[in-house]
Design a binder for these strands. Structure first.
Ligand SMILES: [Mn+2]
Ligand SMILES: [Mn+2]
Ligand SMILES: [Zn+2]
Ligand SMILES: [Zn+2]
Lengths: 146, 146
DNA sequence: CATTCAATTGAAACTTAATCTCAATTTCAG
DNA sequence: CTGAAATTGAGATTAAGTTTCAATTGAATG
C-alpha cells in the first residue's frame, strides 16, 4: 500500500520507482520505531538489497516529502525519522537518563494548538512537541543525563 | 544580575569567570532575540572584546547548563539559542516561507502538558514545541519553503 | 530492435557546525 | 613567590549530510 502511494507520488514528479528506492521504502516500513539514516543505510546493506548512502539520503527526503515518513527530531548526532503512514500523529517524551521514548497523543493538545495558531493568524501545517525529563523507572535514581 | 548568577554557577563547579566568559555573557545579554553561535562569535569579535570560537562554544554550553540560556531549535545549519533569564518561557511558530518566528505562551497548553506527563508517570523538566507553517504575510504567496 | 534523452546511481570529494587537542598562559590558594 | 588546576586559542579533527559528475538505466518512440 505504501509502495502504491510512493509510486504515485513519484509519478506526479516524473520520477521512477527504481529498485534502490524500493529497497529504501521496504526497509523503512519493515522496521518499526525511530531510526537514523545511517542505521537505515546499514540495515539495507545487510539485507541483500543495495543502495548507496547518497541514494538512501535522497530517497529519505522523497519519503518525507511524500508524507509517508516524518522527521521525529534532530539530535546532536543527526536526524531521527519514523514512518508515519498507517500511524496516528503523536508527540514524544524523552527520558534524559535512559534515552527512552514515550509516544503520546492528546486530542485536546492538538485542538488547543490549532486555536493558538488561529489567534496568531498563523497557518500551521505541522508541529513537533518534545517533552524532556525522567521516565518512571529513572526517577529517583541518581543517573547522569546522557 | 545575570553575571552574578553565572558567577555563582561557575563557583559551585570550581570554575572562574574569566574575561572571555564575561565577554560571551555580555554579548548574549546585550542582544535580544534568537542567535546562532557563529553570529555570536562574530559579534564578540567586532565589539572590542575577544574570545576564540572554542571559548564561545564552551561558554555557551555553560550558559545553557546554568539555565540562563536555552536552545530554541536546531536547524539544518546549526543550533539557535536565546537568553531566557528575565523572560517567561514561551514556544515558537516558525514560518516555512520567510523563516520568521512568532513567540507565544499559553497557560492552558502548559498545564495540559503537565497533566499528560502525570498520566504517563513522566517527570517533565522542559519541553520544546515548534509549530511550522505559514505566517500571515506569507499565506497565499506561492513562495517555496526554505 | 535501435535510438534517444532525461532520470538515476554511486564513489568520492566536499561542506560545515561543532568538538577536540595540546602547548602556552592565567589564576589563585597557600 | 610557587605549584596545581583551570583556561585559552589556533588549528586539527569529526561526522552527518550534500554535491559532483561520469557512467548506467530505462521508458518512450520510430
Ligand atoms: Mn514516534
Ligand atoms: Mn524565543
Ligand atoms: Zn528513563
Ligand atoms: Zn513568513
Amino acid at each position: 500500500m505504501e509502495q502504491k502511494i510512493f509510486q504515485e507520488f513519484l509519478g506526479e514528479r516524473g520520477l521512477k520507482l527504481t529498485k534502490e528506492r524500493a529497497a529504501v521504502l521496504r526497509e523503512v516500513f519493515s522496521f518499526h520505531g525511530h531510526f537514523e539514516p545511517e542505521h537505515l543505510y546499514f540495515r539495507i546493506r545487510g539485507s541483500g538489497s543495495k543502495a548507496s548512502r547518497a541514494s538512501v539520503y535522497r530517497t529519505l527526503s522523497l519519503l518525507v516529502e511524500s508524507g509517508l515518513v516524518e522527521k521525529v527530531t534532530r539530535t546532536d548526532r543527526g536526524n531521527v525519522y519514523e514512518h508515519t503512514y498507517g500511524h496516528r500523529h503523536h508527540d514524544h517524551m524523552i527520558c534524559d537518563a535512559c534515552g527512552g521514548i514515550i509516544e503520546f497523543y492528546s486530542e485536546k493538545l492538538e485542538s488547543l494548538q490549532a486555536e493558538i495558531c488561529e489567534q496568531n493568524s498563523f497557518s500551521g501545517s505541522s508541529h513537533t512537541l518534545e517533552i524532556r525529563g525522567r521516565c518512571e523507572t529513572c526517577q529517583g535514581k541518581g543517573l547522569e543525563d546522557r
